[in-house]
Design a protein around this nucleic acid. Structure first.
Lengths: 344, 344
DNA sequence: CTGAAAGCGCTTACAG
DNA sequence: CTGAAAGCGCTTACAG
């Protein structure tokens, strides 16, 4: 009802100076037990809440960690955000979300970095791709940074081995006897703005090469990382030169591909085997074979890297490569394939 | 390289006072064109970025809107967050995310409201349920608030008509000839912490009553709003008293229910018709009949309500009830049903 | 239109 | 262990 209490009110009520209140409330040393209790009581009685802006201005720290990611509403990034948020909430740190969607947004992000550095103490950057020079500029700055999905060698990072993950997935399809395998999610030009996609493409091509196969242009289709994007890409791939299997760079895309197959009257896996990427819960429900990556753990680890640096950790750059696992399910099940072959 | 410029540096470089710099940079009136340009140039040359903490402390405004939601990584809430974020980013406002998961977290949220009110100018509260008294306390405060999924009558709100949505879904199943219809997502005790679920349950019961049917306990199963939760709930419902149709309170749950049905050797919709809620993209891909709600629009509208109040809008409380639409798809397709009947 | 000055509410050396 | 005082970097009446 009355105006909010400020530190001065607490000080006078406790009969001490504001400096002492500040120390006592933040749990700093050099405060006698008796004084501390007196202060805590006064603060309690006044329902005192420190003004964060004043504290941040005075201390030169924001108690905030920034998180940059391309979108908020895909399964993968929503889980990244949730993972980071959980860690920060535990430490009573604020989270500052920045959505960096597309090349223009990256430019804006870069331009606003000096401003951003005034409002966050550290940064988690997820799947943000920018020129080397800018990474180095960032590294020259004072802010601890951890990256997810990108490994610059300059910052603590948590990634997966996209090449291995993709070649595992491809090997699985090859082992099932497929020779015409399509790729949905990355075209030959993927690289600048989506390094992960480029690496997965490379892993796939390497696996094909080992069996003397290649990835002709008519078996590749890019598209947005969504159900609709996957569907459209699959439709592009259908026709005379249709593959017998597709590797999709996200589960959403894989579901879209299965949808397109269904509409075209193709059975999965009989006429078309499908592999996804991520292993979101829906994938298991649908029997979708997919590459599992431990999203929450990756996000939490990146957040913890930043926290450790904020606490003064000085060690060398940590570059964690997390394991992925191919989850083999119905969408590539050879038994189904056999079954279908019996039909034809 | 050198230390970051502050407003004083800009002032002296432009040859004006800091007050003038402040006005010029924020586009306030009463600054001559010539002066403004001089200031802008100086700011540009020094790559000046205002310190947000100082500005917020001095102005008593945070330029930040808070968003509270139960989780970040479900489809629905991820889209709520994305919708709010898009609106705020457009206005160059910061977003402060607060995850309020479960009753304990609600208590903590309430306890921290005084602190929160110092760091945000307004609040979007999504599916937050608390005692009437606390809503009134909030309404007594200075902060503009908009609610999503809750209509207290005290704040601008955007909701759907859960009763109608659920009875539409139920009517659809009844029209198809189902008489044993299960409910997944809300038990008889749902209410305190999940009003939407309680309302949907009521809508279902009303639709059943109109046909002289009821909802016996063995046809209800609560569970977490996830694929796994839906699966478990469905498994509970299977057995001697299994329903021929289920209404699930989220698409994730519906997908889990279909999964359980599949594992039990039941065909959808032949042996079990399934209806979901939300209409996420995957639902269409799977042919899942579901209630569509316009999530992004709801989120954006709530955010805009808060913005309008922040800009001084004084009108009466806005209570928007958004339309929902039942999307009829394969998972309840009567033709399939007929087809199956022919078999038996 | 412009400036001098007070003030926003904290934290942090510096003394004692 | 504790306090007085300066300072963090802005905004905003108040004058002119």
């Amino acid at each position: 009802m009355s105006r909010a209490a400020k530190i001065e009110d607490v000080a006078s009520r406790a009969g001490v100076s504001v400096a002492t209140v500040s120390r006592a409330l933040r749990g700093l040393p050099h405060v006698s037990q008796a004084t501390r209790e007196k202060v805590l009581r006064a603060a309690e009685e006044l329902d005192y809440r420190p003004n964060p802006h004043a504290a941040r201005l005075a201390a030169g720290r924001s108690g905030t960690v920034g998180v940059a990611l391309p979108v908020l509403n895909s399964w993968f990034y929503a889980n990244v955000l949730a993972g980071v948020e959980a860690v920060l909430a535990e430490e009573a740190l604020d989270m500052h979300v920045v959505v960096v969607d597309g090349p223009d947004a990256v430019e804006r992000f870069i331009a606003e970095l000096p401003a951003l550095s005034k409002r966050v103490d550290g940064l988690v950057l997820c799947d943000l791709f920018m020129p080397d020079q800018l990474w180095e500029d960032l590294a020259g700055g004072p802010m601890p940074v951890a990256t997810i999905g990108v490994d610059t060698g300059l910052f603590d990072s948590v990634t997966i081995d996209n090449v291995v993950a993709a070649s595992d997935a491809t090997d699985h399809l090859l082992d099932l006897g497929h020779t015409r395998i399509g790729l949905i999610g990355a075209g030959p030009e993927a690289a600048a703005d989506n390094e992960s996609a480029a690496l997965r493409r490379r892993g796939m091509i390497e696996a094909l090469r080992r069996r003397a196969l290649d990835l002709p242009p008519e078996l590749e289709a890019a598209g947005s990382f969504s159900v609709a994007g996957g569907k459209e890409a699959m439709q592009e791939l259908l026709g005379d030169t249709a593959p017998t299997a597709v590797f999709c760079l996200s589960d959403e895309m894989a579901i879209g591909a299965m949808w397109a197959a269904d509409e075209a009257g193709l059975a999965v896996p009989g006429d078309l085997a499908v592999v996804g990427f991520d292993d979101q819960p829906v994938a298991e429900a649908l029997g979708l074979t997919t590459v599992r990556q431990p999203v929450s753990i990756m996000a939490a680890r990146a957040a913890n890297f930043v926290l450790a640096r904020l606490e003064g950790e000085e060690g060398p750059v940590e570059r964690h490569v997390m394991p992925t696992q191919l989850q083999k399910r119905r969408s590539t099940d050879f038994r189904h394939l056999t079954h279908v072959h019996a039909h034809s």
